[in-house]
Amino acid sequence: MLQQWFGWPRFQTLRSQSTQEPIGLLAGAGRFPIRIAEKAKSLGIPVVCVAVRNMASPELEALSDRFYWTGLGKLGYSIRCFVREQVPRFTMAGKFHKVELMKPLMMLHHLPDWRAIRFWINRNRQDNRDDALLLGLIDEFERDGVRCVSALELCPELLVRTGILTKRAPSESELADIEFGWNLAKEMGRLDVGQSVMIRNRAVLAVEAIEGTDLAIRRAGELCKKAPFVVVKVAKPQQDLRFDMPTIGTTTIESMHAVGGKVLAIEAGMTIILDESETIALADQYGISIVAR
Results as ranks from 00 to 15, higher is better:
Q4V: 02
G7L: 05
R10N: 06
T19K: 08
E21D: 06
I23R: 11
G24F: 05
A29C: 01
S42K: 13
I45C: 07
V48D: 13
T70M: 03
L72I: 04
K74A: 14
S78M: 04
I79M: 06
E85F: 01
M92T: 10
A93P: 04
L101S: 08
M102C: 14
M107Q: 14
L108D: 14
P112K: 09
W114H: 12
F119H: 12
R123I: 08
D127L: 09
N128G: 08
L134M: 15
R143A: 09
C148P: 03
C148T: 08
S150V: 11
L154I: 07
C155W: 05
L158Y: 05
I164R: 14
K167D: 13
K167F: 12
A169G: 11
S171H: 08
S173Y: 03
G181P: 09
D192C: 09
G194P: 02
G194H: 07
R200I: 05
A220C: 04
G221D: 02
V231T: 12
V231L: 08
K233S: 06
M245Y: 07
I248V: 01
T252C: 02
M256D: 01
G269W: 10
T271Q: 04
S277K: 09
L282H: 02
G287T: 05
I288Y: 05
I290D: 04
